[in-house]
Design a protein around this nucleic acid. Sequence first.
DNA 1: GTGAAAGCGCTAACAA
DNA 2: TTGTTAGCGCTTTCAC
Lengths: 364, 364
Amino acid sequence: MKRPPKAPSITVSDVAREAKVSKATAARVLGGYGRVSQEVRDAVLEAAKALDYRPNELARSMTTGRSGSIGVVVGDIENPFFALAVRGISDAARLSGINVILVNSGEEVEAEKNAIRVLMAKQVDGLIVTPAQSGEIAHLEEIARSTCPLALLDRALPELDVDTVTVDDRDAALNATRILTRAGHRRIAYVTAALLSGDFRGAESHINTSTVRERILGFLAACREAGIEAPERNIHFGSGRSEGAHAAMHALLQSRDRPTAILASDSVVALDLFKAIRQCGLNIPRDISLITFHDADWTGVTTPPITVIDQPVYALGKSVAELLIRRLKGDDRPSERIVLPTTIIERMSVGHAPDESGQAFESN
Amino acid sequence: MKRPPKAPSITVSDVAREAKVSKATAARVLGGYGRVSQEVRDAVLEAAKALDYRPNELARSMTTGRSGSIGVVVGDIENPFFALAVRGISDAARLSGINVILVNSGEEVEAEKNAIRVLMAKQVDGLIVTPAQSGEIAHLEEIARSTCPLALLDRALPELDVDTVTVDDRDAALNATRILTRAGHRRIAYVTAALLSGDFRGAESHINTSTVRERILGFLAACREAGIEAPERNIHFGSGRSEGAHAAMHALLQSRDRPTAILASDSVVALDLFKAIRQCGLNIPRDISLITFHDADWTGVTTPPITVIDQPVYALGKSVAELLIRRLKGDDRPSERIVLPTTIIERMSVGHAPDESGQAFESN
DNA sequence: GTGAAAGCGCTAACAA
DNA sequence: TTGTTAGCGCTTTCAC
């Protein structure tokens, strides 16, 4: 069977001719707008079926200006957190008959910029983004200024007044850290894959990715509450999946004053930490305690199972999509910032801090 | 700041007027085709920048017939297997400047059909699909007959003569099962999330999703080789994430003649099995051995770590995308079926079969 | 209720 | 090299 060089696709005109009506009339019934008599409608539909007519969405979008799809830019679709959030978005979108075009930024601003450019060029009706870096948001500000609705997922940007859905990161970090301090830990590390742009030391309020800032604020608050000095020394950025990060993790675990407890920013980081802890011959929870954000599947099956901060990830995606879709439908209330609550699932990865003599107590 | 009701976007004509050239000339430099003198080009580019011109991809696609994007339909983006394969596809696509539109079918044929319809309507240049069900492939056959290149990922369809990339599932299942039989196991179960359409008993050759069929063939071959009778009794379909599947899993593990070893079809099923095994108070590998397809992250950190079939998942995605992109570029060699090799990573989840008296030996 | 005609923003023949 | 002129397939006035 040979492939014809070009697909001679059936158009509205073809259907109109077949049904012996005008192009406009055929278009009306095929496009589902305007008023058409029942008889004519039936005739057109029959002709369409006979000819196997398929609408050309592109042409439709071009005239209407609407594409019926929204663009979603996430940091890393391989992270179960995003995978689940995306399902929340997809489900909500499907309910409204809206398609989702998904692009991965790999947490790189350039990729993010490019993705947004492409999506805009494809005339998406709206955009959902998890900003990769808080430093460079000019491209997002531009969208916010435009007529294309933008919504932020998981990471708020204070200077961007758009619909945003996040979780109460500060509270979550606070509560998680308290579990650690109450177990007697003093050397507690917060380990995140996020990159820090510029210097940090005490300038936590200048971190403008909300997720990162809020968590650090919660972490520090709990530490200070427990009278821990200079807790900010124990915040470790950039623990993503790189050689350097891996090495840094090992260095951290093998240093003389290694932390006795760690709070991980996501399940991917936590898994890396878990592996590194093992490789260093350390035992959870005897030598070191671990709590992580995100109740990933595997956290319940390790030995010991990991205590986690359970975020309503699916709801996060669902809500942000609903917010965006409401905008698409013309709602123009002032932008909303929804903060979803988290809970902590206590499992077995937190133990008492080893005492100064080096002897350890088990617990939990 | 008020939002204007409509975006008066800058068009080629606007740029042409500003640069004092014809629309065609402006279009040539903006679209990057045809020949234009350097001076004129600069003038147009400058005008475009001054006006902040953004091309309308939709309009472009409509005239060229090409959209510069490919559609990808996967079963479940939350499955790390697909997430990784999708990254392979995305990376390959990016290298060719092609965009990826991703849709989740949720392993449902209706959703798959719908996704394909939408993608075609959006004029994607090509399609990559992991067919949800082998029974209903009329919609895929239709694409195959059309001018839109189609490529299959991970699951081959014998009656569909299109580019396909899979792994050597039969060989993988054969080798994995042999590890089990050699450890003395006789009651070995194969557990898969796949649904069986129609009856099964001995009719394995009628299963037309290659992945499922090939694995079963390999599994059965190894069982027969070991002299195990009626091994097909131990094949369990439909172990996805449903109430029923969960119950069935527990029933299987608690039955009098429960298997002493299990081969799982993917890491999601394996994790569920792992949890169920624990809940039933069984111990791996003492009471039951476990091997799974896909070297998911977590399989190395459980106690014990799980022996896995390591599939080249990223390469799977990358290859299929490369094949498809080659087609887009006009290559019309006969369709190719690439089968990638797998390896087995032996960890600690396989033990000797308990002897008939019920006493167990540990091993591995 | 129906039809004729004018575009949407772009590319692609064809002339000049 | 540049400009002119048609469309792509659809929606949308605006008459009839």
